[in-house]
Amino acid sequence: MSVPAPRPAVDATTLRLGYGTNGFANHRLDDALAVLADLGYDGVALTLDHDHLDPFAPGLTRRVAAVGRRLNELGLAVVIETGARYLLDPWHKHAPTLLHDDPTRRIEFLRRAVRIGADLGAEAVSFWAGVRPEAVSPQCAWDRLVAGCASVVDVADASGVTLGFEPEPGMLVQDIADWRRLHAALGDPARFGITLDIGHCRCLEPWPVPQCVAEVAGHLVNVQIDDMRRGVHEHLEFGVGEIDFPPVLAALAAAGYRGLVAVELPRDSHAAPAVAARSIEFLRAAALAGRTEDEVPAHIPGVPA
């Protein structure tokens, strides 16, 4: 089998950097947005939560409009994230999910997230499957997931919003192969893309991280970025884990991805401004180094990674 010639150098400095507001949990949303704009970020991954644009609190229309104006003033793009831990149930993290016996509140949350995304002009609305409850069989959980996703796709289609479904370690859909199965089960909807967490790729995918990007390039609508170690689902600051980032950023550029690449450090709110400052400095340096990459790994059928 012939091996394709090396690809030409790509310019990873064209990537648009964002930061997740779940890493600014101790800040007012307006203050977090201002800090990120001052640091030079291009956008934010806005996690809807009780302290950051609560979708269930009174005056939602007014509050969404105010956030939209602030984003415009600061020149920040936005994606909507839905991974708030205790927004729906004060006793159980992330519950209910689409896999629970009664997913009504989760579905309503996701519908609201889509409508908020439409009002804010969000580039994507991101969500995930959830962990299968022990009392729910794998097949029942899968059927519930497909049905729940289908209802969210209908709302997204009506609102003109792009969905990014995130494979998450330990959840029913935890890797790219699972996402492909779900996409097919839904009938390959055009607005149902993938949210790719770069750290998750290192944690559990079978390919090198740049190859993961190439594998989903045609469906990539949202990117979260963090460092991670193999087999350990822990979001780490850049340089602490095992990922070589210049080839990853070069792969994103080569894939033609032009959405936000948003830092995902949800456990670093205690030092958010400093962590955000270090993160953008690191990613800018890695992107500059990525310009010199003379080959971006791509999947070659039949050739082991």
Rank of each mutant, 00 (worst) to 15 (best):
D31T: 15
L260N: 10
V275R: 13
V261G: 00
T14N: 00
H52E: 11
H233R: 09
T292S: 12
A5D: 15
H270G: 10
T162W: 05
R85W: 12
G231V: 07
L46Q: 01
A287K: 09
L36H: 01
C149Y: 08
G239S: 03
A141N: 11
R106E: 04
R115T: 09
D54F: 06
Q211D: 08
G121K: 12
G170M: 08
R284W: 01
S279W: 05
R85H: 14
G160S: 13
V67G: 06
A274Y: 07
K93I: 06
D188P: 00
A217L: 02
C212M: 04
A156Q: 11
V223E: 09
E123D: 14
Y19T: 08
P138A: 13
E81D: 10
D197H: 01
E168C: 06
V10N: 06
V173S: 14
G170N: 03
A289W: 02
C203D: 05
L220V: 11
L220F: 03
L283A: 04
H299K: 08
A12S: 15
L98T: 06
L88D: 06
P273A: 11
A32L: 08
F245E: 08
L252S: 01
H94N: 14
S279T: 04
L15Y: 03
G302T: 11
A285F: 01
P167A: 06
S159G: 04
G59L: 10
R7F: 05
R62E: 15
A95W: 12
G40S: 01
D31E: 15
D11I: 03
G193N: 04
W142V: 08
G121H: 03
L283C: 03
P304A: 12
G302K: 12
E293C: 14
N72S: 13
A276T: 09
P58E: 13
I280A: 12
E108T: 13
A5H: 05
A272E: 07
A185N: 12
G75K: 03
F192M: 06
P208G: 09
I225F: 00
P96M: 13
T47S: 00
I194F: 05
D49W: 04
V216F: 07
D188C: 08
H52T: 12
D89G: 01
G130A: 14
S126Y: 02
D38V: 05
L265G: 05
V35L: 00
A37C: 08
R284G: 11
A298T: 15
A289S: 10
D119L: 11
D227T: 00
V3S: 13
G117T: 14
A9W: 06
Q139W: 09
D157P: 02
P297S: 04
S137C: 14
L53T: 11
D175Y: 07
V114L: 09
E73T: 12
P189F: 04
A65L: 01
